[in-house]
Structures are given as structure tokens and as C-alpha cells.
Simulated assay, not measured.
Amino acid sequence: MTQTTPHTRARAEIDLAALRANVRALRARAPRAGLMAVVKADGYGHGAVPCARAAIAAGAEWIGTATPDEALALRAAGVPGRIMCWLWTPGGPWREGIEAGLDMSVSGLWALDEVVAAARATGRTARIQLKADTGLGRNGCQPADWAALVAAARAAEAEGAVRITGLWSHFACADEPGHPSIAHQLTAFREMVAHAEKEGADPEVRHIANSPATLTLPEAHFDLVRPGIAMYGVSPSPEIGTHQELGLRPVMTLAASVALVKRVPEGHGVSYGHHYTTPGATTLGLIPVGYADGVPRHASGRGPVLVGGRVRTAAGRIAMDQFVVDLGGQEIPEGSEAVLFGPGTRGEPSAEDWARAAGTIAYEIVTRIGTRVPRVLLHEEPEREPLPGAVPTARP
């Protein structure tokens, strides 16, 4: 995390107090379950290490990442407690994962073979979680192959090579309340869990609930919920509600310093292709961030920004390093703050507003903010010891 100087052109402020508040709010939505704070993709662009530590301080018992390299980086940074990672490819760092005490997801026999070989080489028992494909059609073991995977994993467990610590899956359409696939996936998950347990598996946790399921589907909470985007104060989808309606506080504020203000005449072309020409004599403000910083080019002509006390719109094309707003004749000093998105407490746009302008989802807006934009941590607090293990809960 880099601190800004008075000359910094742009910054992404990361409000860790808001993140802690979101974790507490999400825990309250699932009071009988533990919580896995998902910090993949560098904490959805917010910074994986500080966000993981803040989540643990707020009561998260587990940390989740996509790739093993992400999980190993957290361990190297001293993040304690249970860390799970799930996006493995052949030849992955299984041995390093075992030595770091990671929970490693297994979706097929090839992965089980590799983790067992690594466990034998290290002489240590690997912690694995079996992933069921209950209908997403992405990673995970198909129902037709589940019995074979469970049998092989149980044999490896009997040998002492692995410990089956979890059974899990992922929703396809939990962000669309009432979608018929939700009930189908829950049924399939229960059936696949029941088969594994009948074969002797005794997992520490069973989990399927992502952010939208954490917020709207208490029947899907099981032993553990896995909020990702909601932890950062961003709504999973408009159908579920705004972040305000969900009681969440956006964690990231993206701002820049206005680089130039100048007067131009009527009919002046602005940015590449002259897709915008000034309707009259006006002032233009230059905002020194662009698509190389993660500002979506698809939001050209539509992306909102608070500058000079008013929300303006990107005028013309968003370029690699900069874009322009038409200030409508307003004169503001260079160095004035331009806020692209934030919590909305000052009337600034939200990440959801940029998502609508770009025809995408808010997940993409926050995760794409690039490394040229320094992250500035706000409201850090001393770390606390992690809570041990996952919270047990009654079987639903």
C-alpha cells in the first residue's frame, strides 16, 4: 500500500472501517454460520493483505482466494488462520500449499492424484475440500463422477495422505432471486453432501453461499458463507438491492486531481475521434486517469465524476491515461479533487453507476483499478488473534 503525496495524480482510498462494518453486517445475516472473507484478485482490487487482516479483526474465521499463489502470498505476509484456495491447474504448488497449511480444493481425480503425491513427498497430511458441480457448469465434480471422487478421497484419507475438511459448491444465479436453478442446486448439493457423509466423510465445513446467497438465502448458509463483493460494500446485483438497501458501505473511493482547466470555443472537438464537440463556449477539465488505470473505455461519453461540486460526465473518448469533462463554463482551480466513485456521502457516483455507464457489473469496476493508482489505507486498527476454526452449526 502506497501513501499519496501532494503531487499524486490519483488514489484509491480503502476504508478498512467500512470493510470491518460490512463483515459484521454479513455475519449478522448468517448468525449460525462461520464466514469466509474472499480476497481473491488482490481483494477485488482493494488490497488482499490489509483486507484479509481487517476481515479477521471483524470476526471472519476463514480467508478465501482463487489461486494458490494468492493464498501463499497471504501466508508469506503473515496472515493467520484458515486460508482456502480453489483454482488449481496441473503441476500446481501442492507441496507448498500443504506446508503452508492451506485448504486446497479438489474437483477431479487428477487433482487428488497430485495432492496425494505431494502429501506423500512431504510426509504431511493435506487439507482438501471436495467441490461439487451442482449446476454452475464451471469448476467442480459432476454428480455422475462424484462417487468415484469421494471413494478415492476417502481411500487417501484412510492412508493419512489427506483430510477432507470441506464439501462445497457455487451458485450460478443466486443474484437473480427466485431463479429456478437455485432450488435445483441446493437439492443437488444436499444429495452430494449426503453421499459423501454416508461414505464416511466428516467435513469441518459445508458451504455454497456466495455474497447474494449470504444476503438472501438463509437456507443456503450451512456451516460457512463466502461473501466476496458484498464485503467491499458493493451490491452483487441490482435485483438484490443497492448497497444502501443492503446495509453495506462501499470501501473504495477513486479520486484524481484535476490536471488542467481551460476555456474553449463553441464547436471544439474533444478527445479521440471528436465524438463530443462543445455545444457552446465552455470550460474543460482534464482528469488524469484512463483505461490503463482501469477506467472503462466503454463508459466514454457516459462515465460520471464529481468535480467542482457537481456530477459531470466524461466528454468524448476515455483515453489510456486521461479523459475530459465539460465544466459548462465553471472555473475551478487545477488540483481540485475529481471523485469517480465512492460511498456517495458527498454526492459522488458509485461503482454501480460506472458499471451502468460501461454496460458491465460493479465487480469489474473495482477489480480493474490498476497498479498505477496507489491504494491509501484509512482507519487501520491493531490486528487481533484469529478465531480458531469455523463456527459449527446445526445441519439444515
Rank of each mutant, 00 (worst) to 15 (best):
P227Q: 08
L217W: 12
T214A: 05
K198Y: 10
L217I: 12
M231D: 06
P218G: 09
T216S: 15
V225C: 11
A196C: 01
A230M: 08
A188Y: 07
Q185V: 00
I229S: 05
L224R: 10
H195A: 12
A220R: 06
P203E: 03
H221Y: 10
F189P: 00
G200V: 13
S211C: 13
T187Y: 09
E204V: 10
V193M: 02
A188G: 03
L186N: 09
E191V: 03
E204I: 06
A213K: 11
E191A: 15
Q185T: 01
A188Q: 14
F222P: 01
P227S: 07
E199T: 04
H207L: 15
A188D: 02
E204Q: 10
H221I: 11
N210F: 03
L224Q: 08
I229E: 07
P212I: 05
A194D: 13
D202M: 15
L217F: 10
L224S: 03
A194T: 06
P203K: 14
E197I: 01
A201S: 11
D202E: 14
H221W: 12
M231H: 06
A230T: 08
M231F: 05
A194L: 05
A196T: 00
G228A: 11
L215K: 12
F222G: 00
E219R: 12
I208K: 03
V225G: 08
L217K: 05
T214Y: 12
H221A: 05
D202V: 15
E191Y: 09
A230N: 09
L215N: 04
A194R: 06
A220V: 11
D223M: 10
N210G: 13
F222I: 00
A194P: 09
A188M: 13
H195G: 04
N210Y: 05
A196N: 01
T214P: 06
P218L: 12
I208S: 01
V225P: 01
L224D: 02
L217R: 07
T187H: 08
Q185P: 00
H221N: 01
H207W: 14
F222R: 00
Q185R: 02
A213W: 14
E191P: 03
P212Y: 07
E191K: 13
E197Q: 09
A194H: 06
A220K: 08
Q185N: 02
A201R: 06
P212C: 05
I229M: 08
A209G: 09
T214K: 04
L217M: 12
G200L: 13
P227G: 06
